[in-house]
Simulated scan of single mutants.
Amino acid sequence: MADEGTSSLQTNPLDYEKSLHGCNHYRRRCKVRAPCCNQIFSCRHCHNEYTNALANPKERHEIVRHEIKQVLYSIYVAQICTNCGVKMGEYFCGICKFYDDDVSKEQFHCNDCGICRVGGGANFFHCQKCGSCFDVKLRDNHTCIGNSLKNHCPICYEFLFDSIKAVTIMACGHAIHLDCYNELINQDQYRCPICSKSVSDMSSTWQRLDQEIEATIMPEEYRYEIPILCNDCHNTCKAFFHIFGHKCGHCKSYNTRRIGTTDDSLERRA
């Protein structure tokens, strides 16, 4: 009979593990939210012991028990309360302990990321090398960099992996917030803030520069070669100086930088 009673107690959610929860002061399966500081404690005595030990005397206070209006169920996390039947959220993740009633976000849990994301599981894939979820449009269409999202945005410096803002991958493989990327482009900045490679296909821009350079002849005293380094292919070469840009002789990119001074160029020319 004793065994039957124990079994009944364990399977009845209303009596769930009565003797295993609470604090040194009371055995209970809930916690209280203190109306004075909005913090959660197992009981009013736990609250008073904590607050009266604060280093700043002005922060010390005691709870007024009659003003307590909220208690929190503290046994196990579930989508539906086993006692009253209230659904805590239309979306529930038992791993992340996450609730949300706005299912229009299309939340889903990624086991590889270990967190919940929004946008619909069918619209994303997890790249094992990059260590994060990306839009399916980027499957086999992006440069992989190990754990690329477990870094900070190079513009706003917010940690990217668990950011709630949309993230995109630049052509070089580095990640950036989509809003920050758009702002970068609006400011006519087309280099990755991390590696200086072109952030997208710039072939049409390079063609336009070809036409502008061909139509703008430099004065005789500025017609000399300078050594350049290409940020896109990392090769070095020489190019004729021009105010509009210097074209890489290997990949035809204008995303280049000078690696010699004017004096050096004039000396070699002489």
Score class of each variant (00 low, 15 high):
residue 16 Y to E: 03
residue 36 C to T: 10
residue 23 C to S: 13
residue 30 C to R: 02
residue 28 R to T: 04
residue 10 Q to A: 12
residue 20 L to M: 12
residue 22 G to T: 01
residue 23 C to Q: 07
residue 39 Q to G: 02
residue 35 P to L: 04
residue 8 S to E: 14
residue 15 D to R: 14
residue 12 N to L: 07
residue 7 S to M: 11
residue 19 S to Q: 12
residue 32 V to W: 03
residue 28 R to D: 08
residue 11 T to N: 10
residue 15 D to K: 11
residue 36 C to P: 00
residue 18 K to R: 12
residue 29 R to P: 02
residue 13 P to S: 08
residue 40 I to W: 00
residue 20 L to P: 00
residue 34 A to L: 10
residue 9 L to H: 12
residue 24 N to V: 05
residue 12 N to F: 08
residue 33 R to F: 00
residue 40 I to A: 03
residue 35 P to R: 06
residue 28 R to K: 12
residue 22 G to F: 00
residue 28 R to Q: 15
residue 33 R to Q: 08
residue 23 C to A: 09
residue 18 K to D: 09
residue 23 C to N: 04
residue 26 Y to E: 11
residue 23 C to K: 02
residue 41 F to P: 02
residue 25 H to K: 09
residue 33 R to P: 00
residue 10 Q to E: 14
residue 19 S to R: 14
residue 31 K to P: 01
residue 36 C to S: 13
residue 27 R to D: 01
residue 23 C to E: 05
residue 23 C to H: 05
residue 11 T to Q: 10
residue 21 H to L: 14
residue 30 C to M: 06
residue 38 N to Q: 06
residue 39 Q to M: 11
residue 16 Y to N: 05
residue 27 R to C: 01
residue 26 Y to F: 11
residue 11 T to K: 11
residue 22 G to P: 01
residue 25 H to M: 05
residue 40 I to D: 03
residue 20 L to S: 15
residue 34 A to G: 09
residue 39 Q to H: 08
residue 28 R to G: 06
residue 17 E to I: 08
residue 12 N to I: 04
residue 40 I to V: 15
residue 20 L to Q: 14
residue 29 R to Y: 03
residue 6 T to E: 15
residue 16 Y to L: 08
residue 21 H to Q: 10
residue 41 F to E: 02
residue 22 G to R: 01
residue 27 R to L: 04
residue 37 C to V: 07
residue 11 T to P: 00
residue 6 T to C: 15
residue 23 C to M: 07
residue 20 L to Y: 12
residue 39 Q to V: 07
residue 12 N to T: 10
residue 27 R to V: 02
residue 40 I to F: 01
residue 36 C to G: 04
residue 40 I to T: 11
residue 18 K to Y: 10
residue 17 E to H: 12
residue 9 L to T: 14
residue 25 H to N: 14
residue 14 L to Y: 15
residue 18 K to I: 05
residue 6 T to W: 15
residue 31 K to D: 05
residue 25 H to R: 09
residue 33 R to C: 07
residue 38 N to T: 09
residue 22 G to C: 01
residue 23 C to W: 02
residue 39 Q to K: 11
residue 23 C to Y: 02
residue 27 R to W: 00
residue 26 Y to H: 14
residue 11 T to F: 06
residue 11 T to S: 08
residue 34 A to Q: 06
residue 21 H to G: 08
residue 29 R to T: 10
residue 36 C to W: 05
residue 19 S to G: 10
residue 37 C to R: 04
residue 12 N to A: 06
residue 24 N to H: 11
residue 32 V to P: 00
residue 11 T to A: 06
residue 32 V to E: 01
residue 31 K to F: 01
residue 19 S to A: 12
residue 32 V to N: 02
residue 13 P to M: 04
residue 9 L to Q: 15
residue 34 A to H: 04
residue 10 Q to W: 10
residue 26 Y to K: 09
residue 17 E to D: 10
residue 25 H to W: 05
residue 13 P to T: 07
residue 30 C to E: 06
residue 13 P to C: 03
